[in-house]
Amino acid sequence: MNTRFDWKKSSYSHQKGACAEVAADGHRFLVRDSKHPSLGCLGFPAAEWRAFLGRLKSEGRPGQG
C-alpha cells in the first residue's frame, strides 16, 4: 500500500524500526507506522504539517528536559 511514495523514516528511529515514516503527496504529507505500513496512513495538509514541525522546532520534542 502507498508504495508509489518516497517514504522517509524518522532520523530518531530506533534500531528495531519502530518509528513513523513520512511522504509528500502533492499538497499534503502522509504519515504511517513503519512496522505496519499496510494499515494505511494519515494525511495532513502541507500548511498544517509545516506548522506542526515549526512548533516542534520551537518547543522541542516531547520528553526533552
Rank of each mutant, 00 (worst) to 15 (best):
D6L: 04
H27E: 13
G40V: 03
E48M: 01
L53R: 15
W49T: 10
A46F: 08
K8C: 08
G60F: 12
A46Y: 00
E59R: 12
R4C: 05
H36Y: 03
H27K: 10
G17M: 03
L42H: 08
R4N: 07
K16M: 02
D33I: 07
S13C: 14
P45Y: 00
G43L: 02
G65N: 14
R50N: 13
F5C: 05
P45A: 06
K9E: 06
A47G: 13
D6S: 10
C41G: 04
G26E: 07
K8Y: 01
P45T: 00
Q15Y: 11
E59V: 07
F29R: 01
F29Y: 07
D33E: 04
L39H: 13
R55M: 07
T3M: 07
R28N: 03
G26D: 05
L39Y: 09
A46V: 11
A23E: 11
G26P: 00
G60Q: 09
A47C: 03
R50Y: 10
K57N: 09
F29Q: 06
T3Y: 02
C41T: 09
R32I: 12
W49F: 09
S11G: 05
H14Q: 11
W49G: 04
G40A: 11
A18T: 09
G40L: 11
Q15W: 05
P45I: 03
G26M: 10
G43H: 06
D25Q: 11
G54I: 14
L53N: 10
Q15C: 00
N2W: 00
R55N: 15
A18S: 13
A20Q: 10
S10L: 05
G54M: 08
S34C: 06
A47W: 01
C41A: 14
P37K: 04
D33T: 09
S58G: 07
T3H: 01
F52K: 10
K57F: 04
D25E: 05
G63C: 05
Q64A: 12
Q15F: 11
L39K: 08
D25P: 00
D6Q: 04
M1E: 11
A46E: 08
G54C: 13
H14V: 08
L42Q: 13
G17E: 05
F44D: 06
Q15V: 00
H36M: 09
W7M: 05
H14R: 15
P37F: 04
K8R: 02
A47T: 07
P62Q: 01
N2H: 01
R61M: 00
H36Q: 15
S58C: 12
L56A: 14
Q15R: 07
G43V: 00
W7K: 01
K8G: 03
K35E: 10
G63I: 01
L56M: 07
P62C: 07
K57A: 14
H36T: 12
G26T: 11
